[in-house]
Design a binder for these strands. Structure first.
Lengths: 209, 209
DNA sequence: TTGTTTAAGTTATAACTTTCACAAAAACCA
DNA sequence: TGGTTTTTGTGAAAGTTATAACTTAAACAA
């Protein structure tokens, strides 16, 4: 029983969720693993295996009830209740992220933080920018679950430590930097440059072959 | 010899590159696999294995010459020459991406595109916004290698097809959508919502255990 | 030289992930 | 009601990736 669910399986839940929502919006009540697999670009056995890590959601001979499966996955992921997010760094990327995330119904961007006094006090999509020094106080009052860091790599360690002290346990960073992640904190990176570099390699390799 | 290099290994090259650049900026001339592994949070045997897919870059008993290894990885990835990038979608995210990528020396954001006439003609960080209809003409003249799509999922298929027709073979999308990727095109997704969802699962699970 | 140390490169093993193939269960039909 | 069809859920096999262990080469000191 003491086995762990592969991280890739967890990540694929998000993909399934998107495909399922689309199916729901098309008015489909039932979906089969083969159909879900096709729309997600994944094999049907993998879809079934991934879901089996979390329980039994389908009916044999019938498929999955779209609405029920969406609810189930949302609960597994933990987005059945809106997730409170803060943005650290109110530069170009930070402000774009605020607007972007505010449009997603199950996220609430509850605040933004910047060390630059000129940005503090401004509002982006109804989200107020606070000085970083107020993060701990803010966190005690509002209890955000996740911090999205849109800051340069230089200040990353300091910021992660601060976020951790404020009791936030999930951190998404747009700067990739080898730092010491405080215990109890889960850190995740999205480095746009790396993604483009990966593409660069692939297209370069493709043109040679 | 017809084995393929794991995608994860290619992706890790970008991580190594960042750590190596840091080491270089600290004035370090040589680096060992153990040290590179430590700063990247990867095991040393994996570092050596990853590099071995591409050649022999080190000296036994000594380590890797930092500068030489950086050059080697840059060439493997294909960023020894600046990469020309276009941004499609000049909304909040698109404009932030222009500014973000313009700061990276080995990327050149050569143009942006938007279907909204009100955005066409404007300039962001010295990058001009063109109407999407001009993409093919622009591409013939400028030959960008990669398109970054900061557009909503609804228009994704259409845009990918257009980008493909313009001869661009690498596409990075910020919207995740099950679409048909044209032959010869390499597509890569960065879905911020999915990354936060993954964190949500992890912190939820951590707090239960 | 020659022996010793160090660390890359490589092979072998272990761990993990995906696919395959089939049993079990629900639905449907005659 | 019983047989047939369908599709899930799952255990085993295959394939892939990571780690550990080992071999080789370079550097250095005596």
């Amino acid at each position: 029983m003491g086995f762990s669910i592969p991280e890739v399986s967890i990540r694929r839940l998000s993909i399934y969720l998107r495909c399922l929502r689309q199916a729901l919006s098309r008015g489909e009540e039932w979906i089969q693993s083969t159909e879900l697999a096709r729309t997600c670009g994944i094999s049907s056995s993998l879809v079934r295996k991934d879901l089996s890590y979390f329980g039994e959601f389908g009916i044999r001979g019938r498929g999955y009830r779209v609405e029920k499966l969406i609810k189930a996955i949302e609960e597994i992921i933990g987005i059945d209740e809106p997730i409170k997010v803060i943005i650290v760094g109110a530069g170009n990327l930070g402000r774009a992220l605020i607007r972007h995330l505010q449009e997603i119904p199950y996220f609430r961007v509850v605040g933004a933080f910047d060390k630059n006094a000129s940005k503090v006090g401004s509002t982006v999509s109804g989200v107020r920018v606070y000085p970083v020094a107020e993060m701990e106080k803010f966190s005690r009052e509002t209890s955000p679950q996740i911090a999205v860091l849109a800051i340069p790599p230089e200040g990353l360690q300091e910021t992660v430590d601060m976020v951790s002290r404020a009791g936030i346990r999930g951190v998404l960073s747009f700067a990739l930097q080898g730092i010491k992640v405080p215990p109890g904190v889960v850190m995740n990176y999205v480095e746009i440059a790396s993604e483009i570099e990966f593409l660069s390699y692939k297209i370069k390799k493709g043109s040679v072959a």
